[in-house]
Computed example of a mutant assay.
Amino acid sequence: MIKQAPTSLSTITLNRVFDAPADLVFRVWTEPKLVALWWGVEGATNPVCEMDVRPGGRWRIDMRTPSGKIYRNQGVFLEVVENKRLVYSDIPDPEMPEWQGVPPAPRLHTVTFDWRGEETYVSLEVQMASEADRNRMIAFGMPDGLKQGFDRLTALLNDFRRQGRAALNASESP
């Protein structure tokens, strides 16, 4: 279940409970071949998924929507605490026509992983530079896109649970 938590005027927060241990949820969130399987809106693919998961490491994901449009996502990891927390910047692609030459300011994403028994509670907080940027991202559909990504992540974790660790390891093969 995703719940949109009360937010400040410049923040979007989503919470989800995953039926999987924190180490697995963290791994599926930080290994590029696994991230490429769930990142983005329903039906999207990720032809580019590069991640150097360490403070100062860069990441880039090019999401291709079902219509064929490519959205470049990129930024820098600022904090990495294995199985507990990720903090990274997300720098809007200035070439996107939707921004009409004025992209929003970079965003700060904070993801926390809280393992409770067999479940992991994940909180994703996206901090915008201003209320205006938050409103633009809401109008652009960011909250729904994040929810769709969480739905895809849930489905992937459910597949791994049904198929066992062998399926997880097989998904990493070149």
Rank of each mutant, 00 (worst) to 15 (best):
W115M: 15
E95H: 09
N83G: 03
Q100C: 03
D90C: 12
E98W: 15
T110R: 11
G101W: 02
H109L: 09
P104R: 06
W115D: 12
L108T: 09
M96I: 06
T110V: 14
E79Q: 09
D90Q: 01
P103M: 13
P103H: 07
D114I: 11
P103G: 10
V81F: 11
P106E: 14
Y88P: 12
V80Y: 04
S89N: 05
T112N: 13
V87L: 00
P97D: 02
L78T: 06
A105G: 00
P97T: 00
K84E: 10
F113R: 02
G101I: 12
I91C: 14
T110P: 14
D114A: 15
L78N: 10
E98H: 13
L108S: 03
D114V: 15
E79Y: 03
S89Q: 05
R107K: 05
W99N: 06
L78A: 01
P106L: 15
D93M: 07
P103R: 11
V111Y: 06
R85L: 15
Q100F: 01
L78K: 00
Q100H: 02
F113D: 08
G101H: 00
H109E: 04
V80W: 00
L78E: 02
V80F: 11
P92W: 08
E98A: 15
P104F: 05
P103K: 04
E98K: 09
V87G: 01
V102H: 12
W99V: 13
L108D: 00
P104S: 00
D90S: 04
D90H: 00
D90E: 11
D114F: 09
H109W: 10
V81T: 09
L108Y: 07
L86K: 04
V111D: 14
E98Q: 15
H109D: 05
P97A: 14
R107L: 05
T112I: 10
A105H: 13
M96Y: 05
E95N: 08
K84D: 13
